[in-house]
């Protein structure tokens, strides 16, 4: 077990957590965050495994595909260094989602100030034209639908998983999925993809 900074372990903290909720595998989310704060690399890996798909989907809905992987890492770096600002561990999902959205906004702002690169850089994994065409249409959907659909269709998360990670209610996620899918079909149909 790797403890990169185990010497920096803070005193035990107590968080009010929902009964029975486990954030990352092997403990409550508060426990995992506490371990991460102490520099536990394994706990950080668990947190990353549980939330990186959500962060990836949020970024994929906002920035060019070639930049998403790097930004996922940047988001987790920022979250780690600002973990002290998180007051309620149950809000972690919404909190890191907000960091991801802010990073995407900052990234786009910086990108506009620099030389533009084509969105699709050859040499990476070949992505079929159909995939990119659908992604283009997803980008035109309202934010709530866009993010939820990408978590479901790209990352393979279930509706309940999306609700657990984002902090949204199950009802909201269900509505976002169904309305988003309906809108996606309509827009693709209008572009001749049906």
């Amino acid at each position: 077990m790797q403890h990169a900074l185990s010497v920096a372990r803070p005193p035990v903290l107590t968080f009010p957590g929902r009964s029975g909720e486990t954030g990352a595998r092997g403990g409550s989310l508060a426990d995992v965050l506490r371990a991460v704060a102490s520099g536990d690399q394994d706990a950080f890996a668990r947190l990353y495994a549980d939330y990186s798909r959500m962060v990836h989907a949020i970024l994929l809905g906002r920035v060019p595909r070639r930049d998403v992987d790097d930004l996922v890492q940047d988001v987790f770096m920022t979250a780690y260094t600002r973990l002290g600002a998180l007051r309620n561990p149950e809000a972690f999902g919404g909190w890191i989602a907000a960091i991801a959205r802010n990073h995407a906004t900052d990234h786009l702002r910086r990108s506009h100030e620099q030389e533009a690169l084509p969105d699709e850089m050859p040499g990476g994994d070949p992505i079929e034209a159909e995939t990119l065409a659908i992604l283009d249409v997803v980008h035109t959907l309202p934010e709530a639908y866009r993010e939820t659909l990408l978590m479901r269709l790209v990352e393979g998360m279930s509706g309940q998983e999306i609700a657990d990670r984002t902090g949204l209610s199950s009802g909201s996620v269900r509505v976002n999925l169904h309305r988003g899918m309906k809108l996606l079909r309509e827009k693709l149909g209008a572009e001749g993809y049906d």
Partner: peptide
């Protein structure tokens, strides 16, 4: 179609993140 866009970048190393932000002394302000 969209599943092709799935990607799992490697987990960053905590020790290096702390070193990048030495003024923050990690997240211990929490």
């Amino acid at each position: 179609a969209l599943g092709r866009l799935r990607s799992t970048p490697p987990v960053p190393v905590l020790a290096d993140m702390v070193r990048r932000k030495p003024d923050a002394t990690g997240p211990i302000r929490w």
